[in-house]
Computed example of a mutant assay.
Amino acid sequence: MKKVWISLIGAILLTGCTGQSEATAIPSTTESLTKKKEGTKTMTDQAESIVQALLHGKIGEVYEQTSPSFKQQVSKTQFVEGYTAFSSGLKSWNQHSHTSINGSYYGTWVDQDAKRGLVLTTDEKGIITGVLLKPLQNYPDTDNALTKLAYSAPFTGEWYVFWGGQNVLSNYHYEVESQRYAYDLIQVKDGLSYKGDPAKNESYFAFGQEIHAPQAGTVVHVVHDLKDNVPVGTMNAQEPAGNVVILDHGNGEFSYFAHLKEGSAKVKVGDRVEKGDLLGLCGNSGNSSEPHLHYQVSDGKDLFQSKSIRVQWENGWNPRQGESITAK
């Protein structure tokens, strides 16, 4: 299949360890919960109507709904020709995942054969800020090979899956073997991941939240002295994982807890921890654009040399982008 890309411009997302661009949009006002829910439904419905318009050949009409910055980088001719070439033989677009956080919408669709993907991003007014067309590759052998141990959630309360799943559209880590089954987790209230000054780490609901061991293990690596990124949005690409704790579960499985808060690690190398023990606090260190937890299980203790393993959650969870996880 010919690779055709239409630029993904202005996508408002979250950045983590791999260093791919994902920043977070900041709305100017905070709305009520009811209005936020209504707004999310409206954005989802609008996005679905846009995708269906593409499916039915209304490509030029869709282009007219794009933002000025999109039009500056992609001409109408490029858009129409690119989509037409990419969609040859297309029968349907089926929604795969969506998320609406901090005033921006990110939705993904796959074709009838799960061979092609479409990403659409819009602002809170429904204006298209980005479109990405991407051939999809899957890895069924590793997708179906779960961890030997069953893991509990490494936190308490409700957390939101910003990146996660067995698809590059809903989990940008998926293309990278060392992080294929990683999760980026935040906390969300009323459609926002923060309250107050968005430049301050303390404004984010996830910042400072306790991170716990999801299984027993031995601590094999700890970094605790890296500064949290200030202001929010700046990143430390030289130390991608930031402050991190790594547990060896003793069976060829290692848990990673990355982007922890400076000085918050409660363990040291050699410590034996039990399931539920406090490891540290969620932070915004390393290659992170806002406070969040990067969690994954791998087959070794080197984050970038080991292979990620799909997590078997003890309660049968299979969370992916846009879903919430609640743990006691």
Score class of each variant (00 low, 15 high):
residue 229 N to F: 11
residue 243 N to L: 00
residue 216 A to V: 05
residue 240 P to M: 08
residue 226 L to T: 03
residue 246 I to N: 01
residue 230 V to W: 10
residue 211 I to Y: 06
residue 227 K to R: 06
residue 220 V to T: 04
residue 216 A to L: 05
residue 213 A to F: 05
residue 241 A to Y: 05
residue 214 P to R: 02
residue 215 Q to I: 03
residue 217 G to L: 09
residue 239 E to V: 06
residue 212 H to T: 09
residue 234 T to N: 15
residue 233 G to R: 11
residue 246 I to R: 03
residue 215 Q to V: 03
residue 221 H to K: 14
residue 241 A to D: 13
residue 240 P to T: 05
residue 241 A to F: 04
residue 218 T to W: 04
residue 225 D to M: 06
residue 229 N to T: 09
residue 213 A to P: 01
residue 237 A to W: 11
residue 214 P to A: 08
residue 241 A to V: 10
residue 211 I to M: 08
residue 218 T to C: 03
residue 241 A to T: 14
residue 240 P to L: 04
residue 218 T to F: 05
residue 219 V to W: 05
residue 222 V to Y: 00
residue 232 V to I: 15
residue 228 D to M: 06
residue 214 P to E: 11
residue 216 A to G: 11
residue 243 N to I: 01
residue 246 I to W: 09
residue 211 I to A: 08
residue 223 V to K: 09
residue 238 Q to R: 12
residue 236 N to T: 11
residue 231 P to T: 12
residue 245 V to F: 02
residue 217 G to E: 10
residue 238 Q to S: 15
residue 217 G to S: 06
residue 211 I to T: 08
residue 245 V to L: 01
residue 222 V to F: 01
residue 239 E to Q: 13
residue 217 G to C: 12
residue 236 N to S: 13
residue 228 D to S: 10
residue 245 V to S: 01
residue 239 E to P: 00
residue 240 P to C: 06
residue 239 E to H: 13
residue 225 D to N: 13
residue 245 V to G: 01
residue 224 H to S: 08
residue 211 I to H: 03
residue 233 G to W: 13
residue 233 G to A: 12
residue 244 V to Y: 04
residue 240 P to F: 06
residue 232 V to P: 08
residue 233 G to F: 11
residue 216 A to Y: 01
residue 220 V to R: 04
residue 224 H to A: 08
residue 217 G to W: 04
residue 231 P to E: 14
residue 231 P to S: 15
residue 223 V to H: 02
residue 224 H to Y: 03
residue 246 I to M: 09
residue 226 L to H: 02
residue 215 Q to W: 05
residue 219 V to L: 06
residue 223 V to W: 02
residue 241 A to R: 09
residue 229 N to C: 11
residue 221 H to L: 14
residue 244 V to R: 05
residue 224 H to I: 00
residue 241 A to N: 10
residue 228 D to W: 04
residue 244 V to K: 03
residue 222 V to W: 00
residue 237 A to G: 13
residue 216 A to T: 09
residue 237 A to I: 13
residue 243 N to E: 05
residue 228 D to G: 12
residue 228 D to H: 06
residue 241 A to G: 11
residue 211 I to S: 03
residue 223 V to N: 09
